[in-house]
Nucleic acid binder design. Structure first.
Length: 192
DNA sequence: GGTGGGATTAGCT
DNA sequence: GCTAATCCCACCA
């Protein structure tokens, strides 16, 4: 793989635009045992406009501090005491916005991914925000790291889906401000 | 200082 | 469909 790291022109935009542009690009994790990678198939934007579902909406705390870094940093947190969620911080420093990576389609390191997700059907390996962090063994070690300077990154690809393959829907899994069309799904994305 | 609720998932009824 | 798992911390007292 000789793809370049995601351009600052993408991750410095606001979260809804970044969520759109991340579809089809590649999430890549480098490990001592090889490369794990997958095309991003589902994202969700959290904007800094008073959205109560945004972790940054009530100001900076130790937990959400990474969300106030400049666009291009990772924000990783633990939900329900059990699962990790991976977000790419977007926009300018201190703006407090991010994109949740909700799904990928594996392209590299299939064996390693399967080993991290025992007893799971192929289509369920990485089709959820906590499923993909488990599959890629991503945890809070990456919280606050910068994508261009981390063993976890996103690369440019020639696989950005055509507009008609991108559907926007209301968000899921949250109780506040659900009725906003900030979830982006690449329908018909390649399935492993 | 106590309490309640998560940006979820898997397993069971 | 329902619920347990299990940690952090925001919020109220």
């Amino acid at each position: 793989m000789d793809e370049s790291v995601l351009s600052p022109h993408v991750y410095t935009q606001q979260a809804d635009s970044v969520a759109f542009h991340l579809l089809g690009r590649r999430l890549v994790r480098y490990t001592s045992e090889g490369v794990l990678a997958g095309l991003i198939t589902e994202t969700e934007a959290y904007l800094p406009d008073g959205d109560p579902a945004n972790h940054a909406s009530r100001g900076e705390t130790p937990r959400n501090a990474s969300m106030f870094l400049a666009g291009g940093h990772w924000y990783v947190y633990l939900v329900y005491g059990v699962h990790y969620c991976l977000n790419l911080v977007t926009g300018r420093e201190q703006s407090g916005e991010a994109v949740l990576i909700r799904g990928v389609s594996p392209t590299h390191g299939h064996e390693h991914i399967r080993a991290n997700r025992p007893n799971v059907a192929p289509r369920d390996l990485t089709n959820g925000p906590a499923k993909l962090t488990k599959a890629f063994a991503i945890d809070t070690d990456w919280d606050g790291t910068f994508l261009a300077d981390s063993s976890l990154t996103i690369t440019e690809t020639d696989t950005h889906p055509p507009n008609e393959e991108i559907h926007t829907t209301d968000r899921v899994g949250i109780s506040k401000a659900r009725d906003r069309f900030l979830r982006y799904v690449w329908v018909g994305s390649p399935q492993y």
